[in-house]
Amino acid sequence: MSQNRRDFLKTFAAIGTTAATLTAVTPNIAKGSSRRELSIDRKGVLVDTTVCIGCGKCEWACKTAHNMEAGNFDDYSSQLTDGSQRRPSENALTVVNQIDTSIMNSDKVKLQCMHCDHPACESACIVSAITKQENGAVTWDTDKCIGCRYCMVACPFQIPAFEYQKALDPKIVKCDFCYDRTKEGKLPACVEICPVGALTYGTREELLIEAKRRISKDPDKYFDHVFGEYEVGGTSWLYLAENNLVNKVFPKLGTNTAPGVSESIQHGLFAYFVPPVALYALLGGVMWLSKNKDKNEGGH
């Protein structure tokens, strides 16, 4: 019996060694990358906060396009002046806040899902309900969603919201980049309604060129940074502002993809099943040794 176990463990150790060698030899797969290649023509929106007047029409249009209770068209601009920093929620997929409420007429910033190039939510979703679409939108399949809310925890921008108020069939909600509208060739509802054109819809590539053109043309007007170009591996929504938005509007985020960290740990942990096997092997070895010890002691 003990002989059998020894054989068993030997075999296992051999497999483990082979697997470990294999891991070392196999080229490193880009960590946290989506399974699909990102399309060069993926769309984005350039938000020029210096242009935004805070009318809140985008909020109204968003609700209307998503069949949500929208209320009065004219009541939106007054929400800015109460000084609160609102967050996108299950009742409002996008919100506009005044960045610095202590200064009258300071810049306004629109918040919604950033539609990351490497979405942490997609990576975190255990049922693969969330998808990064070819056009850049990060969408989700309500039928697949089991309501685990992992995406809410994973999102570096704290965007996905959950319908906590609904007792029956609560759902995850967030900005879907007007996926249904853009499929038909329409602009996203917010982009379409913006009276001052603070939002520009286009391919991410062309928007980055345009953003940099604006900065170089007006270096006094803009803070020299396009937020979203590299943050968490790049986002579809890009921001231009007079001042640095980091720590004021957005958290300080590195340029590594958000799922990069978690996936490298997870994938590393379970890569080719080596670490678990190694762990069990170690434990098995300890057990075996101690058992042998017991036997020897018992023999005396």
Partner: peptide, 9 residues
């Protein structure tokens, strides 16, 4: 992208 539409302008 570099020329705003008429309404925006």
């Amino acid at each position: 992208a570099n020329i705003p539409d008429l309404k925006s302008a």
